[in-house]
C-alpha cells in the first residue's frame, strides 16, 4: 500500500543526472531483535551529486548511522539490508560481490565516525594507520605513505605532523584523532566521504575548525560528502543541501538555506524551534513534546503522527509520500503549507 504513494527519488527524476554520484532508492535496513523487527531504515530515497555536501539530520535513533553504514554495506548483525538499491558511480552496490565492495571501501567511498578515538586501532601508530590505507589501495610504499600522510595532516592544520604520525591514539586529543580519521579517509582521493556525526563528540570551537578543514580538503579532492548530524548549526556550516530524517524515513529535503527560511514539515519546524538559531535568539525555546515511536512499532501512516500538532485522521491511515512541494523542496507531509503557520502562530 505504501508503494502507491512513494514518489521517485527527490530531485533526481527518472533520468539520472550526468553529475550523479550516488542514488539510493527505497532503502530498507531492518534489525531482527528480540523485541521484534526494528525498521531502522524504512524506505529511504536520495541522491548525491559529485562534490556535493549533503546533510542528513535527525534525532538520535532516527536511523542516520544505519543509513550511512548501509551505503558502505557495513551493517552488522542482527541488521540486514532487506530492500532497495544503492547505485554509486553507475554500479549497483547491493549487487556487487564482497571482494569488489571491499575494494571500493576506503578508496572510492570513505567513512569517518562520531567517536574518533575508539575508531582507531589502540595499539597501532597513527602513521601506520594512515599509510595502511594508502598501501592497500594505491600500492604506495611505507616511506612514501608517511610523507603523504604528513602532507595531508599539514593541510588539516596539524602543527607537527611527524610527531602525530609517531604517536598512538590514546596520546592524542579527540580533535586530533578526528583529523587523523579524516586524513585516512581522504588520502586515497575518494569520490564520497560519509561523515557520521563526525564532530558531535567535539567541543564547539574544534568542531567549527574541523568542519572548515573538511571543506577545504574535500574541495581539493572534489569529494562529495554525506554528513549526518543532530546539530542544525553543523548542517548550516557544512552542507548545501539537507535531508531531515525521522523514524527511518526522509521527511523533508531541500537546500539548506530554504530549510531554515521555509520549513515544510511539522517535524522540521519542531526541530528548528528547539534549537537556538542565530537569528532567532531571544525567541523562547520550545522543546518538542513527546517521544519518537519505537523502531519496532508497526506504523502504517505517518511516523510523526503521535507528536504532530497539525495531524488529521488521514495521516494515520496512509504514509505521506515524499513529494516535491516547490522546485527542489520535498516534504513527506499531506499539509506542508500549514506546517509553518499553524505552529508558529
Amino acid at each position: 500500500m505504501q508503494q502507491h504513494f512513494r514518489t521517485i527519488d527527490p530531485g533526481a527524476g527518472k533520468v539520472p543526472q550526468p553529475d550523479e554520484l550516488l542514488r539510493v532508492e527505497d532503502l530498507r535496513t531492518h534489525f531482527h531483535t528480540r523485541h521484534g523487527i526494528a525498521k531502522s531504515v524504512d524506505g529511504v530515497d536520495f541522491h548525491l551529486s559529485k562534490g556535493e555536501h549533503l546533510g542528513l539530520i535527525g534525532e538520535s535513533g532516527s536511523g542516520k548511522s544505519v543509513t550511512a553504514l548501509s551505503v558502505m554495506r557495513l551493517v552488522r548483525e542482527p541488521g540486514r539490508i532487506v530492500g532497495g538499491s544503492i547505485h554509486f558511480e553507475g554500479q549497483d552496490l547491493l549487487g556487487l560481490d564482497a571482494q569488489s565492495m571491499r575494494r571500493l571501501r576506503g578508496s572510492r567511498i570513505s567513512m569517518i565516525f562520531q567517536d574518533p578515538l575508539n575508531h582507531l586501532d589502540p595499539v597501532m601508530k597513527i602513521g601506520d594507520w594512515i599509510s595502511e590505507t594508502l598501501t592497500l589501495h594505491k600500492g604506495v610504499g611505507r616511506k612514501a605513505a608517511y610523507v603523504e600522510a604528513a602532507r595531508i595532516l599539514k593541510v588539516l592544520k596539524v602543527a607537527s605532523p611527524e610527531d602525530v604520525l609517531r604517536a598512538y591514539p590514546f596520546q592524542l586529543s579527540g580533535g586530533m584523532c578526528q583529523r587523523v580519521l579524516i586524513a585516512t579517509a581522504i588520502i586515497t582521493g575518494p569520490a564520497l566521504l560519509i561523515a557520521d556525526e563526525a564532530t558531535s563528540a567535539l567541543d564547539v570551537t574544534v568542531q567549527a575548525s574541523i568542519l572548515r578543514n573538511l571543506d577545504e580538503l574535500t574541495d581539493i579532492f572534489g569529494t562529495a560528502v554525506l554528513l549526518t548530524t543532530h546539530n542544525m548549526l553543523v548542517v548550516r556550516q557544512a552542507c548545501t543541501r539537507v535531508m531531515v530524517m525521522y523514524g527511518g524515513r526522509i521527511v523533508e529535503s531541500c537546500d539548506t538555506d530554504v530549510l531554515f527560511r521555509n520549513p515544510m514539515h511539522p517535524y522540521t519546524v519542531g526541530l528548528l524551534d528547539s534549537v537556538p538559531a542565530l537569528e532567532r535568539i531571544g525567541e523562547p525555546l520550545r522543546p518538542m513534546a513527546g517521544e519518537p515511536p519505537l523502531p519496532t512499532e508497526d506504523i502504517v501512516g505517518c511516523k510523526f503522527y503521535g507528536r504532530c500538532p497539525i495531524r488529521r485522521p488521514v495521516c494515520q491511515e496512509m504514509r505521506p509520500p515524499l513529494a516535491e512541494v516547490e522546485s527542489g523542496h520535498w516534504s513527506a507531509c499531506f499539509f506542508p503549507e500549514e506546517s509553518r503557520s499553524k505552529i508558529s502562530s
Binding site: L74, S110, H119, D121, M124, T133
Partner: peptide
Amino acid sequence: DFMTALRAKGLRERTIVLGHAFRN
C-alpha cells in the same frame, strides 16, 4: 568500534583478524 573503521578502510578480513584484532 574500530572493527567497523577497519572494514571501512577496505581491509581484507584476514588482515583485520590477524593484523589488528589479534595484535590487540
